[in-house]
Design a protein around this nucleic acid. Structure first.
Lengths: 209, 209
DNA sequence: TAGATTGTTAATCGATTAACAATC
DNA sequence: TAGATTGTTAATCGATTAACAATC
């Protein structure tokens, strides 16, 4: 089964909403409720759920527990996946801290940096190691995913070391586009681009009014 | 002229690359070079450039200066746009610091927080104000864009205040989906979703091999 | 039953790519 | 000229939405 990337993103969002709903004592949820919360259409929600191969016999909405489990069976692995944050600046710390609160099948098990004042300490609840120990620790700790938050001028070389060490996926927050082996799944996010996009549409909307 | 969102994102990326190229003394660039750097096709680059209404008479690549100017004429406003970062945690600081280095038409002119130990200080190079002063400062400083980096439980109410204060665009980094007036341009980014997407495709790739 | 909801196909919409003419 | 490149239309691909049957 191969689901589209856009559907995967939404499944992740559905799950977050559903987990929230559990706290309120709700047991079932309609497609139009999920849609409303996320600003989607109910059809799209139902279609995504259909693509997972799940369906409910009831017409009284989806059982929240069941839906969470089904999404988990798509997104998670049984044993979980280990993640490293590479580059412990403000952004690296933000991400690490963000994650540590969550119970999740994704575990940040190490952070890496070059700064001697950071290395070999616990930062945001996780051990920080010197980048020289990549290769060793990625194997020892069975890390398959790296979140890249190093300064731009280090991005390319660090990414290359990560690939050589056998990392399987990289989420790249640096402003540098990476050109790496296609065996490694790469997701890029550039916040400058996002904010420039917002600025463009703000400008456009204004000139329309 | 109404350009698609995806094109706008790429224009922002083209410009960043082009600015970099200037430092190397390069004066012209081929569509296939830009494409290569960003992992796109040359056709897509040329099409985006076409959509801007620009064309070059030369077959020796695009003049880098000209291209930067043309992109600027699309993305920028003459006087620039003022931006506020709302919520000065690690992420807010990361974003603020990230921006301050750049010469850009987007200026972070204020940050906001509730924490008394942060308020009325300069953080990452920008004044931090108490959230109570939103309304006043958004008008006084002519802030049209907010970057939302508050804790999840404050996201909805803070967003509402922002909308009431007359903000025109919000870039939402909280994990809460906002339901706000459609007059305000909203761009959402959820890093949990991104990392879960990477994890999914890592899992998939592995099971394929 | 009537009304609301789910499940699913077909149609539409939007974005990317293929193909190729024009030009240096 | 031959080869490389740009500019642009048409075709393709992928994602969303409309329409509607089925069911509680």
């Amino acid at each position: 089964m191969k689901l589209p990337g856009k559907t995967i993103e939404r499944l992740s969002q559905y799950r977050r909403i559903l987990l929230n709903c559990l706290n309120t004592g709700k047991t079932h949820i309609y497609s139009h409720e999920l849609a409303e919360i996320l600003g989607l259409t109910a059809v799209q929600v139902r279609r995504d759920i259909m693509l997972m191969g799940y369906s409910t016999s009831q017409k009284k909405g989806y059982d929240i527990h069941e839906l969470i489990d089904v999404i988990g069976s798509i997104l998670d692995t049984r044993k979980g996946q280990n993640v490293a944050v590479v580059g412990v600046g403000n952004l690296g710390r933000a991400i690490t801290g963000y994650f540590m609160g969550k119970r999740s099948k994704l575990n940040i098990v190490a952070t890496f940096d070059t700064d001697p004042s950071k290395v070999n300490r616990v930062i945001a609840g996780v051990n920080c190691y010197p980048v020289q120990q990549f290769d060793e620790l990625i194997k020892d700790l069975n890390i398959s995913i790296a979140i890249l938050t190093v300064p731009p001028d280090h991005a390319a070389s660090v990414a290359e070391s990560l690939v050589i060490s056998g990392i399987k996926g990289i989420l790249n927050f640096t402003s540098v586009s990476l050109n790496i082996s296609s065996h490694v799944y790469l997701e890029e996010y550039d916040m400058i681009t996002s904010i420039e996009k917002v600025a463009y549409f703000v400008k456009k909307n204004n000139s329309v009014l």
